[in-house]
Amino acid sequence: CGGNSSKDIPLETFTPEEIYTRAEFDLEAGDPEEAARLFGEVERLYPYSEWAKRALIMQAFSYHRDQDYENSRIAAQRFIDFYPAEEDVAYAQFLLALSYYDQIDEVGRDQGLTYQALQQLRLVIERHPDSEYARSAILMFDLAFDHLAAKEMEIGRYYLKKGHYAAAINRFRVVIEDFQTTSHTPEALMRLVESYLALGFVEEAQTAAAILGYNFRSTVWYQDSYELLKGQGLEPGLFGANWMGKFYRQAIRGEWL
C-alpha cells in the first residue's frame, strides 16, 4: 500500500512548504485526518511563516472534510481571532457556520444546532456581505430558518391531532408571525382554518382562508381549506382509513398524523 506514513518522519527537519505540500497530498489522497494533523504541525513549527496562516485555514477545511466538526470549529475560530484582516476570514466564518449546518437533523429532533447555524450564518452575511460565501450563506440561512419553522409546525400538528386546538393555534400563529418568509406559512394558514373550524370560530377560519387565498392561491393548501370551508370536508383515502393501514402508516413508517 502507499508510501511510508508521514507520522514517523521527524518533521522538524522539513521546511514549512514541504510539510504543507505533504498535507495537501494527503488531503487529495482522501486522508483528511492526516492532512489536518500535518497542517497543524506547520503552524506549530513555523508560527510566523506565511505558510502558517494558509495551513490554519486548510486545517479547518480538512477537519470539516473529515466531519470532525468540533476541531474544525476550533481551527476556524483561531483563524478569525488571529487574522481578522485576512481575506480568508470570510471563508473561516463560513466554515464555522457549515460545521453546525451540516449536523442539522430531521425535524422531529433537537434544533439546538439550527440556532447555532443561524447565528454563524448571520455573521457571514453581515460581516462579509460582498464575499463569494455571502450568497450561499443567505441561501443556507433561509433553509435553516425554514427548518425551525418546520419544528414549530411539527409540534402544532401534534396538538392538532390530539384535539388540543388552542395549543395548536398558538403554535401555527408563531409560524405566521415570526416565520412568514418560510415555505410553511401556507400550511400554517390551512391548519388554522382546520383548528378555528374545529372550535366553531367560522369567521376566523374564513379570514385565515382569505389570507391564504390572497397570498398562496395556487397552492394545494388553499384547495384543501376551500373544500373544508364549503363543508364537503376531505374524503380520506381507502388505504389510510382502516386500522390496519393506520398501524402500518403510524407504527412502521412513523407518519403518526
Partner: peptide, 9 residues
C-alpha cells in the same frame, strides 16, 4: 389533511 410540507433535510 395528512399532507406535510417537506422540510428538505
Amino acid at each position: 389533511s395528512r399532507r406535510v410540507t417537506d422540510s428538505g433535510i
